[in-house]
Structure formats: C-alpha cells, structure tokens
Simulated assay, not measured.
Amino acid sequence: MEILQSDIVFLTDEDRTRASQLPVGERQLLIKNLFVPYHTYNLGYDAIRTLHMPVAGGLPNLGVVGGLIGPSRCGKSMICEAYVANHPQRDGETGVEHPVVCINASIDMSRRQVGSRVHRFTSSPHRILSRTDPIEWTVDRLLKCRTELLIVDDAQYLFFEHRLAWSATEMFGVVKDVLDTKKVSVMLVGDSRINKFVFDIDAFKNRGYRHSDLEPLSNTPEDLEKFGALLTSIDRRLPFAKPSQLARYRDDFHRYSEGRIGLVMNVVQEAGYRALNDRTACILVEHLRAAVHRMVRPGDDANYFGYKSRAM
C-alpha cells in the first residue's frame, strides 16, 4: 500500500482519535507523504501552471520554456510532484496520454538516460509505440503520449556539475529537440545556474524564457508568521491523538532549516517515526531533539530544541 501526497487534515478530537487508531503502517505513510500547501508552494505551483496553462479554461501553451529556480530543499520537487498528480494520465484515441511528464536529471546524465527516464515515467501500455532505441524515446514518446509539458527537476545537472562542453551541448540538444516540435513545453527546475545557462543561449532566450525564483521563508516578522502557520498546518496532518504543538518550536525549526520546507519535513518525519515507536499521543520535544541530533551538520553549535542539554 502507498499513500501519495497525503493532504488529509485532522481538525477535531474525533478525527485525531481515528487517525491514531489506524494501523501503524498507514500512519507511517501518512507522515512520510505528508503534503502541506503553503506560501512558497503556492508561488511555485502558479509558476508551473502559468507556463503550462496561462489562460484559465484555455489551451496549453506549447513550445515555450520556463524555469523554477530556488535553493536545495526549498520545496521545488514537492511542487513538481503535486502538479503531476493534478494532471494524471488519461485514455486517448490512440492510447494512454501523459499531459505532464516529470523526470529527474542527474550528474553525468546522457541522452540515452533522458530517454530511459521518459520511457519509465510513461511506461503504461501504449498501442502505437514501436521504437526500441531510447535515444529516440525522448521526443517520439512525448509526442505519442500527447505530452504538453515536460518538467526536468534538478535541471542544473544537465549543464553543470563537471560536465564537459560536448556533454552540456548534448543535453541542450535534448531540450531543444523537444521545444522544436512546438508541441511540448519545458520547465527547467533547479538552482540559479539554470538562468546563467539559459540566458547565454539565444535558442532558449528567444522562446520567451521566463523564470520564477523561490526563496525560503526568511526570519522577518512576516515570514516567521508564515513559517509558524506552516508548522501548524503540518501538525494538523499528523496522525496522532493530540496536537504536537510544533509551532511552539518555530524558532528552532527555522534556525535549523533556514526556512526550507524540505529540512523541516526531514525532522518531522524522523520525530514522527520515533513517536510511533514510543506509542505516544503526539510528537514530543525529546523526539525532535533525537531527530535533529542525528541530522545536525558537524560544527553547527546551535542547541536546537535543547538537544545538547539532554543525553541522546
């Protein structure tokens, strides 16, 4: 059993009691796949939507390229996964269609690997697919699956991370081949180096490249208020009998994560698993201490959740 991107909210005592009585495996998956819409998420999701479907109720915008830019662990991958989940595969006249395809780039990725990942994402049976060469899967498969938007997560790995010039050129060629069909748009998701690469390439810049920059929530009063609300929203989705009062530890969470949702969820998941093992009614501060103790960067002297004053 797998629960994907769970957005189940437990608001009442009765809801929480029922959640706490679910089989432990289901509760574990609810924690693992907990999904919370929040300020940065909304900005990123809207950036993808406006590239793909710029007019509400209108047609997909095809043959254009955009960027979703932000530092690691600020929630970009979660946004991509949510967008794909809201645009699932469908039955078409010639087979299964995938309106939105998302693949992850990796260091030293080759054109063949790009094709293989497109193939794996669209692996449902498709009556008219006949090619067996993965080099051709990227464009051919996207067209036959009627894909409107290709999202490439961690796209900086296509062009950087010790790539040789010819290798980066090959990856540029993959993206350009997709765009040249004028039937598929591309969203490049990753860090700020993507903008540096794209703005040096007329073939991308001339296609109206537009980018949205995501930043972690800062320590300004306004952002800290949003960050506290985010912790409360996470709390409402945890399958425990009582609230864990995560917002009480707002400053510790923010100091550790620097406002990045991915790092917050790392601590919450680890602490949640510990609470399940201890069969407590909620996540306790000692669970947070034990979780962060294993994750803190060497040399970081901050006393998150007071873990240094306790024996782990």
Rank of each mutant, 00 (worst) to 15 (best):
E170Q: 14
L150T: 07
R163K: 11
F159L: 09
V152F: 06
T181P: 09
L149H: 01
F160S: 15
A168H: 05
W137L: 03
A165R: 14
R141M: 10
G190H: 03
A168T: 14
D153T: 10
K176A: 10
A168F: 02
V152T: 05
L188E: 01
V175M: 05
L188D: 00
D154Y: 13
W166H: 07
A155S: 09
F199C: 11
S185G: 05
F160C: 11
Q156H: 15
G190Y: 02
W137V: 00
T147C: 05
F197Q: 09
I194C: 06
R163I: 00
C145Y: 01
D154W: 11
T138W: 05
R193W: 10
R193Y: 09
F172A: 10
W137K: 00
W137Q: 01
D154V: 12
R141N: 09
T181H: 09
L142S: 04
A165W: 02
L150G: 08
I135M: 05
E170F: 00
L143A: 07
L179I: 02
F204K: 01
A155E: 05
K182D: 12
V189D: 08
M171T: 04
V186R: 05
E136S: 11
D177G: 11
M187D: 08
V174A: 15
R193N: 13
V198T: 07
D191T: 15
Q156Y: 08
T138K: 02
L142Y: 03
K176N: 14
D191L: 12
V175H: 05
N195Q: 15
K176L: 11
D177T: 11
R146Q: 13
M171Q: 12
V174L: 10
R141I: 00
E148D: 15
K144L: 15
E161L: 00
E161G: 00
V139R: 14
E170C: 07
D154I: 10
Q156N: 13
A155G: 03
H162W: 02
F172E: 12
V186C: 07
M187R: 08
H162Y: 04
F172S: 14
R146G: 04
T132E: 15
N195K: 15
K144A: 12
K182V: 01
F197V: 13
R193G: 10
Q156C: 05
R193T: 15
Y157G: 00
P134E: 01
D191P: 08
F197Y: 13
I151G: 05
A165T: 12
V175P: 01
L164N: 03
K196L: 12
L142D: 04
F159V: 12
Y157D: 10
F197K: 07
Q156K: 10
L188M: 06
A203S: 12
T138I: 06
E161A: 09
M171K: 10
E170S: 13
V189H: 05
K176Y: 03
D133M: 03
D177I: 08
T132W: 09
E148N: 14
E170W: 04
D202T: 09
G190E: 02
P134Q: 04
F199I: 12
G173S: 11
F199R: 14
W166G: 00
E148W: 01
I194D: 08
R193F: 06
L188R: 02
V152P: 04
H162A: 04
A168L: 03
F197R: 07
